[in-house]
């Protein structure tokens, strides 16, 4: 339990998808002009991360990893016929991860279209682009190195999503205010946004080395 809380806090603040890894920057910059759209996309990303990270955890631990398919031998496939403990599908991990993500996003898109047309029109073309939001594939690709268990991976997904949500809403709020400022013309738009993101990342750097509150 304490471990889960630690993973959650770390993935929200310290390993923030945006400020520590720049993942999901494209849509981050594109939708952060208004708070309302930012909230919408932030929630969509959080939801997709929360669902796909555990799904990809299952895919990695029961399909891709070396020896992960051993359960097929347990199901009655004789060892003489195919010894699955030596099968290593690491080379296919990109394809499998992205397929899981794309399929899941497709389903989400259909559901949103059906149940919340308002949200659907607000997010417009960005919904399908969640599939190519780097933070979602990124979180999956970080999994093999982290050696989580299933519950931990779910918390990690949720935390990363919340971190992304916070980052996008905060930037949108700043940009709404910024439109009243007298920024030099060539710096307006993307330039000043990058510098703002840099300064925000600076603030988030201070979380590095924070002693996590729940034991070790």
């Amino acid at each position: 339990m304490e471990n889960l809380l630690n993973i959650g806090i770390r993935s929200i603040f310290v390993d923030n998808m945006i400020f520590a890894y720049f993942l999901g920057m494209c849509s981050y910059l594109a939708v952060s002009k208004k708070i309302s759209t930012a909230v919408g996309l932030g929630m969509a990303v959080t939801f997709v991360l929360f669902m796909t990270v555990p799904l990809n955890w299952l895919a990695y631990n029961y399909i891709i990893k070396e020896g992960a398919l051993t359960w097929l031998n347990g199901l009655g496939v004789p060892k003489e016929f195919a010894d699955f403990s030596k099968v290593d599908l690491e080379v296919l991990k990109f394809i499998i991860f992205i397929a899981v993500v794309a399929a899941f996003v497709q389903l989400t898109e259909m559901a949103v279209e059906k149940f919340s047309p308002a949200l659907y029109t607000a997010l417009g073309i960005f919904l399908p682009l969640i599939a190519v939001n780097c933070s979602i594939l990124g979180a999956a690709l970080f999994l093999p190195g982290k050696e989580f268990n299933f519950a931990e991976s779910a918390v990690y997904g949720l935390g990363s999503g919340i971190g992304w949500f916070l980052a996008v809403v905060a930037l949108a709020a700043i940009r709404e205010k910024l439109s009243y400022s007298d920024v030099p013309k060539p710096l307006r738009g993307l330039g000043i946004t990058f510098i703002t993101v840099g300064l925000m990342a600076f603030a988030f750097l201070s979380f590095i080395g924070v002693k996590l509150p729940f034991g070790n």
Binding site: T193, I195, V197, G198, L199
Partner: peptide, 10 residues
């Protein structure tokens, strides 16, 4: 750190 990248790019 990531901060530098953002500021340089800006």
């Amino acid at each position: 750190s990531p901060v530098g990248a953002c500021i340089v790019l800006g």
